[in-house]
Every structure is written in C-alpha cells, then in structure tokens.
C-alpha cells in the first residue's frame, strides 16, 4: 500500500551516501557502518514488526474468520468465513448507528474545532496582543490534560440540575437542558467537550501558518484600502490553505477514532446516540468477544482513514 506520506516528504530525498553500485566491494568502514545500522535499527524494527505490523495484518485476517470466545481457548475453533463478518456488519443496525454517530461527530466537531483554532490563533497572533505566551499556554492547557479526567469533569458540568453550564445558561434565561440524557443533545455535548479539549493543538499550527504569510501583503492591502474582512478573505485564508489541508485532514482522522468521551460520559447512550465506531468495536471485541466482527469494524476504520489520507494527498497535489 502506497500512502500519501511516502510521496509527500521532501526530506527523504537527500542522502547521497546510499547511492552506491551493488557491484563495488564494500570498504571496511562501510561494513562497520552496515553492522552498526543493523544493531541500531534492530530494537525499533523488531518491536514494530512484532507488536504493530503483525497485529495489523492479523487484524485484516481475523476479520475474515469467525474467531470468538471459543477460539480464544483453542484457535483451531476459528473458521474462515470470507466476507461474512462484513455482510453481517452491513445488516447490523447498531453498526450503522455507530457509523452515523461518528460521522455526525466528525462533521460537527471537525469544522467547529478548526474554526475555533483559527479564531484563537488570530487572536494570539494579532499585532496588538499583549502577553502572547500566556494566552497561548492557556489555550494549550486543555490539550495536555487527561481525556478521561476532563470527560468526568464535563459530565458534572453537564449535570441537568447542578451543572455549572445549565446554571450559566439559566442566568440568561435558557431553560435547563438534559445534555447527556437527551439523545438529541448528548452527541453535541460530546462535540463541545472535544472542541474545548483539542482546539489548542491546531491553534499552535495555525499560529505557525499565520506567521508564514508575508507581512508585505497585508501592508500593501492596507494601502489599497482593503478592510479587515477583505484582508482576511483574500490574504489570510489563501495564505493558510496548506495549513487548512493538514489540520482539516488530521483532525478528521483523529475524530473518527473517538472513544474515551462516550465511554466515560454516556457509555454510548442514551438510546445508542453516542456509540462511536471504536466504542462499537471495543464492545464487540472485548465485551462480547466477537473478534471476527470487531476486526472487520477495525478494517472499516482503517479504510475510512486511508480515504482521508488519500484525499489530503490529492488536494495537495492539485495545489502544487
């Protein structure tokens, strides 16, 4: 499988040292370096092979078997069933619901996070801003917090009766909302938590992107009498296009893997309205020990991710 990352990196192209004819005899120094390379690489490559690549390949294969609780004791019980797991997934309402929930989470949370990240990045980057490092640190703080902990904190903030959020909303006359208990509100509530937790990361990337936009462009536009909105529309946004692409796709891929928030806050409820694809996979695999369908679900996740990466690659190529 050729992924976009292979072609993207311009940094892999510069090592003249490796260009040697295989027919020339190796010098003692070259032999020594070859040996050293083997020893230096062995731990990392072995670990990756045994604990990452083999499991991933095994996952692809397990998705084609009926591996279940009986097969765990004696793997001989597992049979090859072809695409039966996939067929079963496609006719499983809970799977479709989980996929739909995840798409909703990505479609609402992705753009919202990117917008908040860009907004805060522009605040931090503005010329008049004082105490820039302080604000940057404050925005970034939620990113480093433990997801399980903040999911628990927000669970209390969302409490319909005692929660801080409803109290504040009550002050401006908005009636109490049963955030996590109402199937219509539960997923938006999780989106809000995710945006709060994650926006600081992309904010940093946007700040770097903003600083790369040439200042002369803004000055020239100001001289031409372009207002704030037009400068944003015609200079900032086009200047940030590559950053948008990167941030958009990585955020999307990350959000497809949402798991801990619904696990801790709602256990997938109410009425399955917050069960995500990964939570579905976890339940299939580790609660019901249906390893076959769980693996097939993982493959679906992989395909979605690859599609996202491919999209990024295409768009990038179009721009170039």
């Amino acid at each position: 499988m050729r992924s976009p990352l292979t072609k993207r990196s311009p940094l892999t192209k510069r090592s003249p040292l490796t260009k040697r004819s295989p027919l020339t005899k190796r010098s003692p120094l070259e032999k020594r370096q070859l040996r050293a390379a083997a020893w230096f690489l062995a731990p990392a490559l072995l670990l990756l092979l045994v604990f990452f690549f083999l499991p991933v390949i095994a996952g692809l294969l397990l998705g084609l078997t009926d591996f279940d609780i009986y097969a765990i004791g004696s793997p001989g019980n597992a049979r090859f069933v072809g695409v039966e797991n996939y067929a079963r997934l496609l006719s499983n309402d809970v799977f479709w619901r989980s996929l739909g929930n995840t798409l909703f989470f990505v479609a609402l949370g992705g753009p919202l996070s990117v917008a908040v990240s860009l907004g805060t990045a522009m605040l931090v980057d503005a010329k008049l801003t004082r105490l820039r490092p302080l604000f940057r640190t404050i925005y970034f703080a939620p990113v480093v917090t433990t997801l399980v902990s903040v999911a628990i904190i927000w669970r209390y903030l969302y409490h319909p009766r005692y929660g801080l959020l409803n109290h504040v909303l009550g002050l401006v006359g908005v009636g109490p909302i049963d955030w996590l208990g109402d199937p219509h509100w539960a997923m938006p509530a999780i989106v809000l938590l995710a945006v709060w937790k994650n926006f600081g990361y992309n904010m940093l990337i946007f700040v770097a992107g903003l600083q790369a936009v040439p200042a002369e462009l803004y000055e020239a536009a100001a001289i031409d009498g372009a207002g704030g909105w037009r400068r944003f529309r015609h200079i900032t946004l086009p200047g940030l296009a590559p950053t948008f692409l990167f941030v958009g796709v990585t955020t999307m891929i990350g959000y497809f893997q949402v798991f801990a928030e619904p696990y801790v806050m709602t256990q997938g409820g109410p009425l399955g309205s917050t069960r995500s694809v990964v939570l579905f996979m976890y339940e299939e695999g580790f609660r019901w020990w249906r390893i076959g369908t769980a693996s097939a679900t993982a493959v679906v996740l992989l395909l979605i991710t690859l599609a996202g990466a491919l999209l990024q690659f295409r768009l990038q190529k179009e721009r170039a």
Partner: peptide, 9 residues
Amino acid sequence: VVPAQVGML
C-alpha cells in the same frame, strides 16, 4: 496513517 486500534485485538 494506520490507526493503532486496527491491531489492538
């Protein structure tokens, strides 16, 4: 690009 969850089981 391969999500860690793919190999977890």
